[in-house]
Structure formats: C-alpha cells, structure tokens
Nucleic acid binder design. Structure first.
Lengths: 338, 338
DNA sequence: ATGAAAGCGCTAACAG
DNA sequence: CTGTTAGCGCTTTCAT
C-alpha cells in the first residue's frame, strides 16, 4: 500500500541512501539530487514511515501520559497544558485514562511501554495500589509524576503546594470572620486527598478555630451535593467549608442554597483548582488556583532532564498556588477578581 | 537497553522462532519448551517491542482519534465512549485535539498517518477548511467521521439526527405554550452548527410560530451568557429559546435569571447534548440527549467494516436523539425526569 | 558526494 | 516440532 523510500529513490534514479539524506537534509547532497528526490517524493505522495524510523532509531518521538480520567476538568486542563508545552518539540502525546482503576492504569502503562514511548507523565490514581506499576515503569523509562504521586518516592514529581494552598483558603475564611470550619474532600486514596486534608487541619489548628469532622467522599459534584445535605441535616452549619476541589464546592453551594442557607452570608465556601467550574458556578466560586501551566512546563522540563541521562536523586517540585476571591466567601479588603 | 526475544531464546536454549511461537501461543511447541521460554521471559523481564511487531506485521493495533478540543465535555464524553468500545478489541486509541484549528488538525492527521494507525475517527473542526486533509486521510486509511463532518461526502459518518433533535425541542416548547421562539447557536462553521439551525427553522416553520432572528456565536458558556444579555437588552423576550448545545443553554439561563427573567415561567430554555452540564445547571436543564454510546459503537463498527476492505459507497448514519425534560421548560403531562 | 549493506526486533515461510 | 532465514522501512556506517 504505502510508497517507501525505495520507490522514491528509484523514481529519482538515486540510491536509497541518497534519498534518505536528501529527505532528511541532515547531510550534504548535490542540489540536483536534492531537487530530483524532492520532486519524486512529492509526485509519489511519499510519507515517511514513523514505525520503521522508530525501530531503526530506537526512539519514537512520543511521550505517554496517563491520568485518572478525562471527565474531570482539572485533568483535561493539565493535559492541554502539557500538549501546548510539547507542541514545538516535535514530540507527540499518547494520552490514556486509567479510569481511576489501578488495574487499567497498569495495563495502560504496559502498552505505552510496549510502544516504546520516550517518556511518561503520570498522575497515579491510587497512592498505594499504583506503586508497583509506576515504579516498574520508572525503571524502564524517564517518568515524572504530575499532580498525584505514589507513596515512597523513587520517582520525580511536580504538583501544587497543597499545604500552602489550604493555608491560603483557611486563612482567608478566618480573615472573613469564620470561627468554625469544616473540610469537604475525598477519601484518602490519592496523595492530593491526603495532603489537602492535612494541610487544612494544620492551618485550622494553627489559627485555633473550631474544626468539625471532615466530610470525605469523591472529587465529584455529586459528593459535594451530598456533603451539603449532610451539613444541613446536622442542624448546625459551620461558618466556612473548605473543599478539596471545585466540583465538590459547586455541588456544596448548590445544595446549601437549595436548603435555604445563604452563601456566603451564612456559610462561606472555598474550592480548589480554578478550572472551568469555578466561574460557571452561581455565585462565582472563591477558590485556590492551581498553577497548571507552570506545572506542565516543569514536568516537561524535568522529563527532558531525565532523558538527558543526568543522574540525580528524585526531585519533588511543589509550586505555590494563588487564592482567587470571588463571591462565595466574604472579601477582605482588596483582592477581589472575576 | 531492552531485552529482546533473542535474549529470551538464548536463555531458554531455543531458537528465536520457538521463543516467538511459545510466547504468542499461536503455534504448537512442546510443553517443555513453552515452560522454559516462559520462565526465561519472566526472569529477564522481557517485554515485546510493539514497534518491531508493527513494522513486521504492517499493522499497529492503534486507531487515531481527533476531536476539536477535549475542553468541551461533549467531546470528552464521546472519546470515553469510543475508548470503552475499543477496550476489548486490543486496539489502543491515540487521541489528538485539533484545538478548533484546521491547520493543527491537518498536522495531527499527518503524524497519525505517519505512525501508521490502522484507522481514524475524526470530528472535523471546520466544514470547509477541514476538507482536503480529511479526504486525503480517508484515501490512505479507513476513516469515519463522528459528530461533525465535512462537506461533499466521500467519507463515512455517524452522528445524531440533528433535524429530529431540533424538532423534538421545538415541538416540546410549543406544546408548553410557546408562541415565539429563537435559536441560540454557533456560527455556521461546522456541520452541527448548520444542521441544528436548519432543523430549528424547519420545525418552527412547520409549527407556524413566530421566529426571531437566530443568535449565532460559539458553542460556549460565555456566548450563552452574552446571548442572554442580548435578549434582555432587546426589550422583548421570546417565549422559548432553543440552544445548539448545553453550554450555551446554561450560560443563557444564568444571564436571563440574573437579568430578572424567570425560567421557565417567562421563557423556556432547551439545550442539546445532555452531557454533564445539564444536570449541574440550576435549575436542571431540559435538553436533547445525544445517544453517545450508540454513536461510538456505530463508529467503531463502521471502522471495522472498512478495515475488512468491504468496498461500498460512503454511509451516513444518523441516530435518533431523545428529549429529556427537566426544569427549564414547562412540562407537558408525562415524561419528566431527573 | 554517493552507493552497498548491515541491522533495529519481530514473525512467518521454508526446510529439516 | 524446531531452526534458519528473509524482510518489514529506515538510517548510518563503511567503502568508494
């Protein structure tokens, strides 16, 4: 079916070696040959076979990326950022979703490795169950973890500084007058879930406010709605609820208001991520913005370093987030934005 | 770096052919050899090189998919559906986003083709500008268009029956008492944009209601908000607005209510797609549900047929959508659902 | 500057 | 049933 470089060479009346050299331009050929080869290639509609090139070169020009799910806007945002980052490096992205299952995650890694990707960017779905597959992959190929990471180190990581982010959120609601606070997050199955809870607890303890027992479910709108209902049913509302992501926060605001509570007058709500949902929410959500572009850039940079062979201990890079005050929390003087 | 089948063969004390046969299990070998090979492979951590296999077999076991953008929940939903559909066929998906640009779309197709995908599923971003690249790709490899399609035919397509969907929406609001209607959609740069507008116009004309000039922008929340403002500023509200997708509808509802109009009492709003956003909306959005699973299944089936070589004229498969009545339109007796 | 040939890892003919 | 070998398409020595 395909037209090969042999066909081009024959049509141009030169050897395949010359054709190869002319096409790649990486080596000198007479202008005349270059011309003839170029014409032949164009006429035949020659298209280089990347598979053969990959086998020969032992490098595919692709990097694999696996995230828990592309239904979550945070992950699609970060995927887009990585794609943009890779844009001009001639590297293609092979994107996979693990669907929040360590089994399919392991399978995905396996096929990515079999396809000989030059590197891997992964947000492991489970802090424990993902360990073997991720470590194994890291042994075979440059790998950096983005956002979520696995226990025990051994592989590079770049993500947001959750601790700092939660401190930002907690201090903000307290500055707005909150005396009792609660955390609405996810069960502690990922690093993000754990770090955000502990960051919240630390900040709240430091401030000396009352802390209600955390509400732990999923990183979803549905769970946010449920958590809001739970709060209403409990009879007494906290002054503020800090959420582990925006989807939870949006759901929470919805059910709180549906139940008659005013946001932010009766209870302040702050989210985390600031991708998409936050501005869509009514009223617009105060949240902690993850520095997605920087995270993606850093991950790609790290991957490049690893590829270069540069041996060094595993790195962890935590990038500082930023508070974005909108309308679900009481403003404190300056800093309000749309 | 990698351990090859030669290493395995040597370690097992057999020829590469036997090793290959034992590993693939596609041909008889003595149990003893099978055993020895299996052990050697396990001990060495052998992992087959898919690149070499692809070159040898002239088939990669991958299909490429290109959609305008993964930021749009409709496309992520359909990508997930296609992934699920492919799950058990041993075929991997190479996902690309064209970012709504015919240029990057063409480039993406080019590299997918260079990587020798076995087939292509594409939602062309532009009904006109996407034509050459898509047609060229279709000439080289089995290709089916999903959702959007290009002008002029020549390639298979599966999508929703837009005409029927818009008729459903229009008839519904009219049954609810609407006497004047308007369409809020996208500029006519894609097949979906065009078909939905014409479907709306036809259904409205058939019903004999008053039709205001259509509002055409983007398939985004922002445009929905703007369109809603425009409607308010115009002084007189229509009884119903039918939207080309849910994001527009959500934005529209938001700005209409913000401007003091009651939904659905003053104006009914109906969306299109029913993925994610619709239930998140407050109040929950009445909409036309795209049969995403069926569309994905059909696309994969068609692709399989094409691969089988089965020559036949290009097919267009339009699947009937379903109306989902929630709370942004007045119900008509039965059929309300969550 | 150009051409002949080796070889990337794999599988399927083809012999034995 | 097993082993030897050719060849998928490409790039790069190695000679010329």
């Amino acid at each position: 079916m395909g037209v090969t470089i042999h066909d081009v060479a024959r049509a141009a009346g030169v050897s395949v070696a010359s054709a190869s050299r002319a096409l790649s331009g990486r080596r000198k050929v007479t202008p005349e040959i270059a011309e003839r080869v170029a014409r032949a290639a164009a006429e035949l509609g020659y298209q280089p076979n990347a598979v053969a090139k990959a086998l020969r070169d032992q490098t595919t020009g692709t990097i694999g990326m696996v995230v828990p799910g592309i239904g979550n806007p945070f992950f699609t945002t970060i995927v887009e950022a990585v794609e943009r980052e890779l844009q001009n490096s001639g590297t293609d992205l092979l994107l996979c979703a693990s669907q929040y299952s360590p089994q399919v995650e392991a399978r995905r890694l396996e096929t990515l490795l079999a396809r000989r990707v030059d590197g891997l960017i992964i947000s492991p779905c489970d802090i424990e169950a993902s360990v073997p597959a991720v470590l194994d992959a890291a042994r075979r190929v440059p790998l950096v973890q983005l956002d979520r990471y696995i226990e025990g180190g051994g592989a590079d990581w770049v993500g947001v500084d959750d601790e700092a982010g939660l401190a930002l959120a907690v201090d903000h609601v307290i500055a707005g007058g909150a005396r009792s606070v609660v955390f609405a997050g996810s069960r502690l199955v990922s690093s993000s879930a754990r770090l955000r809870l502990s960051g919240f607890e630390r900040a709240a303890a430091r401030a000396g406010v009352e802390v209600l027992p955390p509400l732990l479910g999923e990183f979803t709108l549905e769970w946010g709605i449920e958590a809001g209902r739970g709060l209403l049913d409990a009879g007494r509302l906290p002054d503020a609820v800090v959420c582990a992501n925006d989807e939870i926060a949006v759901g929470l605001v919805r059910s709180l208001r549906f139940g008659g509570a005013r946001v932010p007058e009766d209870v302040a709500v702050v989210g985390f991520d600031d991708v998409g949902h936050a501005t869509m929410c009514d009223p617009p959500l105060s949240t902690v913005r993850q520095p997605v572009e920087e995270m993606a850039a850093e991950a790609v940079r790290l991957l490049g370093q690893l590829k270069a062979g540069d041996p060094r201990p595993a790195q962890r890079i935590a990038i500082a987030p930023r508070l974005v005050v909108r309308q679900t929390s009481r403003p404190v003087a300056a800093g309000v934005e749309g």
